[in-house]
Amino acid sequence: MSLDPINLVAILAMGIATYATRAAGLILADRLPRRGRVRVALDALPPAVLTAVIAPAVLAGPAEMIAGAVTMVAAFRLPLLPVVAIGVATVALARLALG
């Protein structure tokens, strides 16, 4: 087991960035705007970021697109774990079927 110094720097930088987001909400709680463009953008931030993270992987090929669509439908109806199981099974079957 080893801990590379560059890896530790990267992990510490990620940790500081992440803790900043956690503490900022407590500090800014009463100062975040409740109306206006900034508020609209803040409210849209979680789906905007999460979608950008996964879009390249979901639109990577036909099997992934099929599984992505099935996962979306499932996500509106089922809890997280069944949704993931359905997504994984669908992509495996679609890859098998599409060669």
Binding site: A10, A17, V49
Partner: peptide, 26 residues
């Protein structure tokens, strides 16, 4: 080697939702 600045920026962006969560929880 680990692209530490990119990783930190990506972590910051993906975790920005914590600001809203923390503001509500505060």
């Amino acid at each position: 080697p680990a692209p530490w600045a990119t990783l930190a920026l990506a972590a910051f962006l993906i975790n920005l939702r914590h600001v809203l969560m923390g503001a509500s929880l505060a």
